[in-house]
Design a protein around this nucleic acid. Sequence first.
DNA 1: CTATAATCGGAACGGTCGCCCCGTTTGACT
DNA 2: AGTCAAACGGGGCGACCGTTCCGATTATAG
Lengths: 166, 166
Amino acid sequence: MRADARRNRQSVLNAAYEILATEGLGVPIDEIARRAGVGAGTVYRHFPTKESLIQAVVLDRLHALTEKARSGIDFAEFFTVMVDAGLTNRAIADVLAGGGYHIPADADAALTAAFADLLHEAQQRGTIRPDVTADDINALVTGCVATARHRGSTTLVQVVVAGLRP
Amino acid sequence: MRADARRNRQSVLNAAYEILATEGLGVPIDEIARRAGVGAGTVYRHFPTKESLIQAVVLDRLHALTEKARSGIDFAEFFTVMVDAGLTNRAIADVLAGGGYHIPADADAALTAAFADLLHEAQQRGTIRPDVTADDINALVTGCVATARHRGSTTLVQVVVAGLRP
DNA sequence: CTATAATCGGAACGGTCGCCCCGTTTGACT
DNA sequence: AGTCAAACGGGGCGACCGTTCCGATTATAG
């Protein structure tokens, strides 16, 4: 690959990462291009569709979360990790909320599976109610993120964690 | 007011109510007009903006919820009432989720106040944790609605209600 | 019945956004 | 240095949507 192409690709990724984190999935491609100092056409050469760019930016975040879930972390703590991820990165929050764009099945499934395992383990150990599913948790994360965003506090997390006990 | 005007106004209201309930706030005005059997211009004669039409359709629902909150209902039960409202009427869910359109301050405030009173009372009586706010509950309602929509169950409501106890 | 003013309908406007096209530039290899 | 394919960029297209406009229509008063 040509040097300028590689450079531009990286610029686009950096710009996309920053803007998506602060603005969410709604930003126009043109703005990402402008911030990267390239034309919109260049963005589309490297990422054939907006969805693919979003994936490129978001996937490693999801992988990081998956790893974290696999690291023997306490379930309740992992819950706060996910809320933090959504708070820090608006694109992540949008993705977790199921906001429009499609995430490739394998990555999504990997996170879901790791997450489900963690949940299941906690349920076996008796620290988490047996009747909740990974989907439920996802919704709760989304709710916590939404509240925590428009005022400071994260007391909701404690409420939810308390409710998750048997 | 001319008879046909009144008739059309009612048609628009009916159509808007139905479609907003099933599709949410995202439906184009043209579709509401089509369903009402009128032109888009007619819709705009009666409701100068999409927001005003949405208000006309949604406000009495909010008032109904407010009354319910004032009727001495149990707090936990009221929680499920709100979730049901969001499940039955997608527009309500969108509004509760703070989805874009502006609801006039007085109606919003009335619901918020009634809701806050109910919450406060329950907290005085010791059935609800003292450190949650009405905003928190709203987020939880939204989360519950989201989950309950894309699969059947409403176990989340029980989780949340359990978590809300001191 | 007729005049007239309110009402109607839907084509058209303006703005936004994802995506494509193509004339121009530029990096890399000889 | 010269060549040329790869990469660039930004104008433009098409779709969508809220809103407006205006010629056609129709209800109603006299």
